[in-house]
Write a protein that binds this DNA or RNA. Structure first.
Lengths: 245, 245
DNA sequence: GCAAAAGTGTTGTCCTTACACCCATGC
DNA sequence: GCATGGGTGTAAGGACAACACTTTTGC
C-alpha cells in the first residue's frame, strides 16, 4: 500500500500530523447542566441554585459545571450530581447540547444538558450552598442564562420519555400506592386519567409487585403498596413497532 | 436590593466578572458530524467520505467540520451539509454529543452528531472530494474515529423517529408508490410488513394525496403514485398520549 | 401465458374508553 | 356518620394481525 499519496494524485493530501490539525481548531469552554426533577406534594419540581453571577442578581440556575480536560460528558454529569446531592446511584440521560453564542454573559460557553429524576425523600438536602432547593416546574419565571429554555426542553423530553420507559418510579418512594403513581403521571403529563383504566393498565402490564403492605397515616382508607419489578421489565423490554404520527 | 452581597454573608461570593470566569474554563475543540441517510435500491445508505488522516489510511468517515467561533451548532450542521452536498432545504436534527477523550487521534475533540435524510435522486453528487459517496448502512465495517458508533446511534434514532414522524418521505422522490414506501419502512426497521395492513394504515391516516398518476417503466403492473400531505400533517399533528413500556 | 407486483375485505383479538357503585378508614 | 379516597366490572368502539384471490402490465 502506498504510504505517500501525494498532492498530485489526490484531491486532498493525507494529513500526517493529527495533533497539529486538532491544535489548529478553535476551542471553546464546555459545561454540563443537570436538570434534576423530583416529585413532592403532587407537583413536579426541579433542583435549582441561585446563580453566582452578579449580573443575574440571584436568579435561579441549574446545577452546572465545567467539563474537565479529560473528562467524559457522562462522567461530568454524574460528578455534578454527586457533588451537589451526594447521590450516585441515579439514572442520567443526555438530552441536548445548547450553543447560542450569547447564552452566557461571560462569552461563548457550550453546554450539554443532562436530565435526571430523583426521589425527593431519599435525598434530604444537606448541602445548601447557593440556596440549593426544589422549585415547582409549573411556576418557574425567568432564570439565569438560557436555563429556562433548557428546562422546557428537558420537561418535554421527560413527558415523552415517561410514557415509554418506567422512569416515573425513580421519582417515587420504593413502595408507593397506585394513587401516588397516577398523581405522578397526571402531574407530569398535565392531564387527568381515569382511575379504573389507569389501574387496569398497570395491572395488565404485570410489572408491579404487591408487597402486601398498606399505606399508613392517611386520613382515609389506606391503599395497597407496590414496588416496581425492574427485573422483569428489563427481561421483557419490548421492541416497540407501530407507525403512528 | 443589596448590590454587594459580601463573602461574610453568603456561602459564595457573587462573581462580578463573568468574562474572567469564562476565560478560566478549560477549552476544547468542537466539531459537528453529519449522518446523512439516503435510500436507493431498497437499501438504506449513508453519505461518507474517505478520511483525510493518514492514520486512518483511507477508512470511511462522516462529513464533519469544526464549529466556528461564533457559530451555532445547527448552523454549522447546515453549513456542512450545504458545502458537501449543495443542499440547503433539508431537515436536520441534533442527535447526541460524543465526548470520549480518545475518539480523535489528534487529541480531545468533542463532536455533536446531526442526522439528516435526503433523497438520493434529488442530489446527484457533483462534488467528489475525498470519494464522497453513498454506502450501504447494513454492511459498514470499521470506520475512522468513533464514526461507526455514531452511525449506530443515529440509525437507532432514525428507527424510532420514523415510526413517530413522517421522516421517511424525505428519502423518497416527491411522487412515490405505496410499494416504495413500504420498502422504505421495511428496510429501515428491518422487518417484514403485511402489504394489505400497511396500505390500510396509510389509507386511514389520510395523509397521502392520490395524484392520479401511475408508475412508468416498471416490468409489471404499475402502481399509483402519491404525494405526502405535509400541510395536513402539520395542521393535525397529534399529541400522543399512551403509557406503554 | 407467464412472471411480478397491484389492489382489495373480513374476521377475531386486543386495547382503550367511558362510566357508577360499594368499601375501609380517620376524624 | 361523614368525608375521603380505595377498589372493582362491563360494554362499545377502534386498532391491529392474520389471511387469499383477482387484476394489470411487460415480456
Amino acid at each position: 500500500m502506498k504510504k505517500n499519496a501525494t498532492m498530485a494524485n489526490n484531491p486532498l493530501p493525507a494529513i500526517k500530523d493529527a495533533a497539529a490539525l486538532v491544535a489548529s481548531y478553535p476551542k471553546m469552554p464546555l459545561t454540563v447542566d443537570c436538570v434534576i426533577f423530583g416529585f413532592e406534594e403532587n407537583e413536579l419540581k426541579v433542583l435549582l441554585i441561585k446563580s453566582d453571577l452578579a449580573v443575574y442578581n440571584g436568579q435561579l440556575s441549574l446545577l452546572g459545571d465545567i467539563v474537565k480536560n479529560e473528562e467524559e460528558l457522562d462522567a461530568a454529569a454524574y460528578r455534578i450530581l454527586k457533588e451537589r446531592t451526594g447521590m450516585n446511584d441515579v439514572f442520567l440521560d443526555q438530552v441536548r447540547t445548547f450553543s447560542n453564542p450569547l447564552r452566557h454573559p461571560g462569552g461563548r460557553v457550550i453546554t450539554v444538558a443532562y436530565c435526571s429524576l430523583l426521589n425527593v425523600r431519599h435525598h434530604e438536602l444537606k448541602i445548601h450552598d447557593n440556596d440549593l432547593n426544589w422549585h415547582k416546574v409549573s411556576t418557574l419565571k425567568t432564570m439565569a442564562f438560557d436555563h429556562k429554555e433548557i428546562i422546557d426542553v428537558c420537561y418535554k423530553w421527560l413527558q415523552k420519555r415517561i410514557q415509554e420507559h418506567p422512569l416515573g418510579f425513580n421519582l417515587l418512594p420504593e413502595k408507593f400506592s397506585l394513587r401516588e403513581l397516577q398523581n405522578l403521571y397526571e402531574a407530569i403529563l398535565d392531564i387527568r386519567l381515569d382511575r379504573r383504566n389507569f389501574r387496569k393498565k398497570f395491572a395488565s402490564m404485570d410489572l408491579l409487585i404487591d408487597i402486601d403492605e398498606m399505606e399508613q397515616d392517611v386520613p382515609h382508607r389506606p391503599g395497597k403498596l407496590y414496588k416496581f419489578n425492574f427485573e422483569k421489565y428489563e427481561k421483557n423490554k419490548k421492541k416497540w413497532i407501530g407507525i403512528d404520527f
